[in-house]
């Protein structure tokens, strides 16, 4: 067996790695490696906050959909992928900067989401919870594979002027696209909140989310509202895709990269809460970043899942969720 021939050397490597990791962590804690190490800690913290903003973007749509439809949208990752391909195509074939394309892609994704609910998910599931879950799963399978058939499985990216634009803050270099994405996610969360709180449509959505039967009596048609909410949730993904593209890559599987994180954020922040999605996103970003720093990038992601489990077990309503 080949795997055992290297056993001794492998042991050494793992050991070597662990030792390095330990001295490194100690260095961070005591700061005895001078400013470089504390810089790394600070940088990791800030970087975590920035990434958290991007995560929040993806989670905003999910939390809206959960808050209104009370279902876990399995198609979320796939729809993010669709939006990213749209943004990528506009950049690559039309030469439109992803930021300029944002309104177009967001509007387009609203249409996609609305249509998807109106003609596929809603029709197939007849509003039943379990069936909606299966239907979103089915939509994900179709979308992933349709894009695979169209674009192939390779990773694509764009390089724009902004790609290497860095913002120098003291000794740190912050990627400008990430800072923009962070700011935009705060703005979009604010817009969503204002929309839900201040407009008639927003109030109707909230009414349906709380009391679908009551809303029906008030003359609101829940199925229309569901389609609307789904569309808005997916439009958020359109915005997220455009903001992500300059600092990320596109492939038919890119959605899977974000989907677990988005679920975690939604639960952490409280399902249906916009401020929760933003704060949850930042917390998860920081957890992941610092987890990577202290546990190594291999074991680091475990921090996300552990936070997730702890929140579910200790405070299932999340940080900002209403008590059930």
């Amino acid at each position: 067996m080949e795997v055992f021939c290297f056993f001794s050397s492998e042991k050494k490597v793992f050991f070597f790695e662990k030792k390095k990791q330990k001295t490194f962590v100690r260095g961070v804690l005591r700061g005895h490696r001078g400013f470089v190490v504390t810089d790394i800690f600070l940088a990791a913290l800030i970087n975590g906050i920035l990434i958290g903003g991007v995560y929040a973007l993806v989670a905003l749509g999910l939390t809206l959909i959960y808050g209104v439809l009370h279902i876990v949208n399995f198609a979320h990752g796939s729809l993010l992928m669709v939006a990213m391909f749209a943004a990528w195509l506009l950049a690559e074939k039309v030469g439109l900067s992803p930021y300029a394309a944002l309104p177009v892609v967001a509007a387009g994704m609203f249409g996609v989401g609305w249509g998807l609910y109106r003609f596929v998910i809603g029709r197939v599931s007849r509003g039943e919870d379990r069936a909606i879950l299966l239907a979103t799963l089915g939509v994900a399978v179709v979308l992933d594979n349709a894009f695979l058939a169209m674009f192939g499985g390779d990773t694509r990216q764009i390089e724009t002027d902004l790609t290497f634009a860095m913002w120098e803050v003291g000794p740190l270099l912050l990627s400008v696209p990430k800072v923009i994405a962070f700011g935009a996610s705060l703005a979009i969360a604010g817009l969503l909140w204002a929309f839900m709180a201040l407009t008639d449509t927003g109030r109707a959505i909230r009414a349906v989310a709380k009391e679908p039967e009551g809303a029906r009596l008030m003359g609101i048609r829940p199925d229309r509202i569901f389609a609307l909410a789904y569309g808005i949730g997916i439009a958020c993904l359109g915005a997220a895709a455009c903001l992500l593209l300059p600092s990320f890559f596109v492939s038919p599987h890119v959605g899977n990269v974000f989907v677990l994180v988005a679920f975690t954020i939604v639960v952490l922040g409280g399902m249906g809460s916009f401020p929760g999605a933003v704060v949850g996103g930042i917390l998860i970003g920081v957890t992941e970043s610092l987890g990577g720093l202290f546990l190594g990038e291999s074991l680091g992601p475990i921090g996300i899942s552990l936070v997730f489990i702890a929140v579910l077990l200790l405070r299932p309503t999340g940080l900002f969720g209403a008590t059930r």
């Binding site: 596929v120 029709r123 197939v124 599931s125 007849r126 039943e128 069936a131 299966l134 239907a135 799963l137 089915g138 939509v139 994900a140 399978v141 179709v142 992933d144 594979n145 349709a146 894009f147 695979l148 058939a149 169209m150 192939g152 499985g153 038919p252």
Partner: peptide, 22 residues
Amino acid sequence: STPGFAPMLYGVVLLVIIGVLP
């Protein structure tokens, strides 16, 4: 045999089954 097409069809059938047989 077009890559992605068969699983896509699988997804469509899935949706049909869910729709027809709740």
